[in-house]
């Protein structure tokens, strides 16, 4: 065995969802790319499925050095990431690719104070959340009092729309849907295939694009400081590329999942008219206003961030149509 000329740098990378999910797929892609681009100088051990750190412990764990790198959803920490939260607002994201690109650029520009303690390696989002249900949801009237599961931000949005929002951890959802405890789920649509929700939810309302969940991949700052300049450069260079790659990957995964659902389980897909969607938007507007006020109170340029978010959304929507 011939060891590489330079001593290897070993890094540990923790992630919370199971290995086949997209946050872990992007982790493996990042690992492969970095190992390749540094020609074996850096070796990365990955820990999917919360085997090293759970979602809520990720930031503390990376700060303490339990893992060198960690990936978690900032959306699980309401109020903690005011700038990132602009992306979590119901502004009608067309795809994960667009939302991920915007998120990365926003973070680049405003350098959120709450992420200062870490080195941000990349940021991305899940695809826009839509409705999978046991009966067709064709308008606000169908939603009224209907028991749908969503987590965090989603529950708030569903409440504003008049649905009966059920809070439930992801692990309980498959059985709850199977037994009919809940009548559907509101999340990005790749779960139709990944968790086999298509077996029970035969109706999908696919263009309401209610919200996205934002993710951050962070590295322990001390560890980052200890890395040689060329490795740092490699990691910096891949940052935006990784965000867009992840968005692309998971957007395609949603398409694949929907195709599978339609073919194998005869799932019906509905698209609401722009007029109907504007009714939904009107109900969700107050949420954006409240967030503006909250962030302004924190002394941040809320209006400017929102304008930037919307401007970037236009820009990247053109760059990544569909």
């Amino acid at each position: 065995l011939t060891a590489p000329a330079q001593a290897q740098i070993k890094l540990s990378y923790a992630n919370f969802p199971p290995a086949p999910t997209f946050p872990c797929v992007q982790m493996e892609r990042w690992k492969t790319e970095i190992e390749k681009r540094t020609a074996g100088k850096v070796k990365i051990d990955t820990y999917p499925g919360g085997t090293l750190l759970g979602a809520k412990n990720m930031f503390d764990g990376v700060a303490a050095g339990t893992a060198d790198i960690g990936s978690t959803a900032t959306s699980y920490f309401p109020g903690m990431f005011p700038i990132v939260e602009f992306v979590d607002l119901p502004v009608g994201w067309p795809s994960a690719t667009v939302a991920s690109a915007v998120l990365s650029e926003l973070v680049e520009k405003y350098k959120p104070k709450e992420l200062e303690k870490f080195k941000v390696l990349t940021m991305f989002t899940c695809p826009p959340a839509n409705i999978m249900s046991m009966k067709p949801i064709l308008g606000l009237e169908d939603l009224k009092g209907y028991a749908l599961r969503a987590s965090g931000t989603g529950a708030k949005i569903l409440g504003l729309l008049g649905a009966a929002a059920v809070g439930m951890p992801q692990s309980d959802v498959p059985e709850a849907i199977q037994k009919g405890v809940i009548k559907g789920n509101v999340s990005s649509l790749e779960v139709m295939k990944d968790f086999k929700y298509a077996e029970y939810c035969r109706h999908v309302t696919s263009n309401v694009n209610l919200f996205v969940v934002s993710f951050a991949v962070v590295m322990n700052q001390k560890k980052w400081d200890s890395l040689p300049a060329d490795v740092k450069k490699t990691m910096d260079d891949i940052r935006m590329d990784q965000a867009i790659w992840t968005g692309r990957y998971v957007d395609n995964h949603v398409k694949e999942s929907m195709k599978w659902s339609e073919q194998t389980h005869n799932v019906q897909v509905y698209k609401l008219s722009p007029k109907e969607i504007s009714r939904w938007d009107a109900l969700l507007k107050p949420m954006i206003d409240t967030h503006l006020k909250d962030v302004e109170a924190k002394g941040l340029p809320a209006k400017a961030i929102l304008d930037d978010t919307l401007k970037l959304k236009e820009k990247y929507s053109k760059q990544f149509p569909d």
Binding site: G145, A147, A155, G159, A164, A165, V166, G167, M168, P169, D172, V181
Partner: peptide, 13 residues
């Protein structure tokens, strides 16, 4: 409450 149609969304927390 869920059976009655008005679930308490944060109960599990």
């Amino acid at each position: 409450m869920r059976i009655l149609g008005s679930p308490f969304k944060g109960a599990y927390e």
